[in-house]
Every structure is written in C-alpha cells, then in structure tokens.
C-alpha cells in the first residue's frame, strides 16, 4: 500500500468531514458526507477489504446521503444558524482532550496488514456471528416498520 495514496485519501476524508461539520448550507454538508464515505470506502479497498468497501459504498456513500437530502428538502431547512463562540470553544476543547487522551495508544508496532477475502468474511458472518446476523436483520425490519409508523400522517 503506497503512502502517497493513503495520504491523499486520508486528506480527502478529513477535508470532507470538516465541510460536513462546518458548512452553513446543509445540502453542501450532505454532499460532502457522501464524498467522505466514498473516500473511506477507498481506504477499505487499500486495506485489502473489498467486501467492506462495497458495502460502505452502497450503504453509506450512496443511500444515506440521498436519504439525508430528501429530509433536507422535506423540512426546507437548507441554512443553519452558526453556533455561538463559547460553544465552539467547548467543542474544540472536548475534541482536543479526546485526541490527547487517545494519542498515547497509537504507537502500534510495524506489521503489514493481511487482505480479508470476501469468502472468508462471508463464511465467518454466517457461522460464528449467525445469531447477531439474524438479530441485525430483525433490527432492520423493525427500523423500517418503526420509521413508517412514526412518519405517517394521522388521519383525523
């Protein structure tokens, strides 16, 4: 895996994430979210995990931003009021403290990654984690039914 490719992808991911949290136009934020997730899928590909990359692309980079833009159009809320300066200060301090606390854990030893084959991942998914897999499918069904029940208009 080339260091240049990783640096470019990581820079694009971080730039996209910054646009998502800083842009005053929510539509711009949603498009930046799509690009951020797209580049994270690229990182998964570099990591030798094509299965995860495809799922990341289909679900997170395609479906979720489209749903988000639908909601933005429905609620007509394209612009957001910027937060107060004190709130920004608190958020920067908290995020910085989080990073500082985590930084000590990052001295990982120098080993190479191993590619994760889709066959192996699928076999594990349907043997070792079969019960969580089924629970996840029930969770998705419940979320779908729940979203319909919550969002429908009540007849009067």
């Amino acid at each position: 895996m080339s260091a240049v490719g990783f640096a470019i992808l990581a820079g694009l991911v971080l730039a996209g994430a910054l646009v998502v949290v800083l842009s005053e136009n929510v539509v711009h934020a949603a498009v930046a979210l799509a690009f951020t997730f797209f580049f994270i899928a690229g990182l998964y590909l570099m990591l030798g995990s094509p299965m995860l990359a495809v799922i990341q692309f289909a679900v997170n980079a395609a479906a979720i931003p489209i749903l988000t833009i639908f909601i933005i159009m429905t609620t007509q809320s394209r612009r957001v009021r910027p937060a107060s300066g004190a709130l920004y200060l608190i958020a920067v301090v908290l995020a910085g403290a989080f990073l500082y606390g985590l930084w000590g854990l990052l001295g990982a030893p120098q080993t190479a990654f191993r590619p994760v084959s889709p066959e192996g991942l699928g076999a594990r998914l349907l043997s070792v984690t079969l019960l969580p897999f089924e629970v996840a499918s029930v969770l998705l069904l419940l979320a779908m039914v729940g979203a319909i029940v919550l969002a429908r208009r009540l007849e009067k």
Binding site: V21, V80, A91, L94, L102, L106
Partner: peptide
C-alpha cells in the same frame, strides 16, 4: 490516528451544530 481525528471532527460537529439533520 486517522480514525481518531475523524472521531474528534464528528464530536465537534455533534457539539456545535444547531440543526438536527446536521
């Protein structure tokens, strides 16, 4: 390190955004 910085950016967004969609 990349995922830690990404998490910090997201944390910043959760704390500062004034719109539920954001």
């Amino acid at each position: 390190a990349l995922s830690a910085v990404l998490f910090a950016i997201g944390l910043f967004g959760v704390l500062t955004r004034r719109n539920l969609i954001a």
